[in-house]
């Protein structure tokens, strides 16, 4: 007991747990509940049946009522624990319910019908994580199509972003040319122009090019990210110019320098940008909402939004689909969280 107390009150560097430490831990624990609790609640709820979901107050874990198949009845009957008049508790199956009276039978002796007050019976339940919502949801929601669209958009857009941004960053960090500062300034200042400000003309441009209702219309416009150019340029500035000069003396062309010297050396920065881009694209909502009108082209986010609009009451399916939508990004975070957090802390941008 003493050692546990010692372990719990141990702090880094200092010897004793001060009041401030206690408050800090309380705050952080409360924060953990608030930040992570809602997601956990969503996941737990997604395994519940429709009957369980409308139950109030809700249970924390998903339960399912035990059923029993009795000869002579087509459907499985719900099992209840019934308190009899003499105080004994028996497991009975309910045949039907009339008002406050339930007609029950003993599964071992299905001939005799026992009538009990419904207040005397308690459903027998066990914790069951059912994937029914997922199975039905995937069928009704056109999940695979949306997933495919999301994957195509995220993958192609990230590759395009890496190529286009690294080329621009290379030019802006390693060459002296007229207009360099102007181009850099324009690039950075577009950080401040959100899509929301230019919604209508962007829609016009996309329509004119013929990219409306086309995944390309979602992929290409967002590829020239100012954040990416800035991040890569800052990194490439640390690559010594002598390396490039000696390669030029050896007869390497500028493209060869870019592909075989700059890109491999900038790999850490490219990795950070790739993670960012995957996050942005997977979660992107506004742009695909405007470009894509035909439902077979929807990404998961747009699909999920329209799905919840259509099926206001089908929470069981919505919950399951929401979990499936957040799963990939959670996996990315679990494996790459160190890069994500340091990446954001160093660039201060998203």
């Amino acid at each position: 007991m003493n050692t546990i107390a010692q372990y719990l009150t141990r702090t880094r560097g200092r010897t004793r747990l001060s009041l401030t430490d206690v408050i800090t831990y309380l705050y952080l624990t409360f924060g953990t509940i608030v930040m992570f609790g809602p997601v956990l609640w969503l996941v737990l709820s997604s395994f519940k049946s429709t009957q369980q979901l409308v139950r109030f107050p809700p249970t924390i874990l998903p339960y399912r009522q035990e059923t029993v198949t009795v000869e002579g009845y087509d459907t499985p009957l719900d099992l209840y624990a019934v308190t009899m008049e003499d105080g004994t508790v028996r497991q009975l199956a309910q045949v039907r319910r009339v008002g406050i009276e339930a007609q029950m039978i003993d599964p071992t002796n299905p001939e005799e019908i026992i009538r009990v007050n419904i207040n005397q019976r308690q459903p027998i339940e066990s914790v069951v994580f059912s994937f029914d919502n997922y199975v039905t949801g995937v069928q009704q929601f056109n999940f695979w199509q949306y997933l495919w669209n999301s994957v195509v958009v995220t993958a192609l857009a990230t590759i395009l972003t890496l190529i286009v941004n690294s080329m621009a960053a290379f030019a802006l960090s390693k060459y002296q040319f007229r207009g360099r500062n102007a181009i850099f300034l324009v690039t950075i200042s577009t950080l401040m122009i959100p899509l929301s400000v230019i919604l209508i003309p962007v829609f016009l441009v996309i329509t004119e090019i013929g990219w409306s209702n086309n995944l390309i219309g979602v992929i290409v416009p967002g590829a020239a990210t100012p954040t990416g150019v800035f991040l890569l340029r800052q990194y490439m500035l640390t690559i010594p110019d002598e390396l490039l000069d000696s390669a030029r003396i050896d007869g390497a062309s500028e493209w060869r320098i870019y592909l075989q010297i700059i890109l491999p050396l900038a790999r850490p920065a490219l990795a950070v940008l790739a993670i960012f881009s995957i996050m942005w694209r997977w979660n992107d909502f506004l742009w695909p909402l405007i470009v894509l009108r035909r439902s077979e082209l929807f990404t998961l986010q747009v699909g999920l939004n329209s799905f919840q609009g259509e099926l206001q009451t089908q929470w069981n399916l919505i919950l399951a689909m929401t979990v499936l939508t957040l799963l990939p990004i959670t996996a990315v975070f679990a494996f790459l969280q160190k890069y994500i957090t340091t990446g954001i802390a160093t660039t201060g941008m998203k």
Partner: peptide
């Protein structure tokens, strides 16, 4: 834990 919600999409 505090950072995790940042990764979730607005719809989610």
């Amino acid at each position: 834990v505090f950072f995790y919600p940042v990764l979730l999409s607005p719809v989610v």
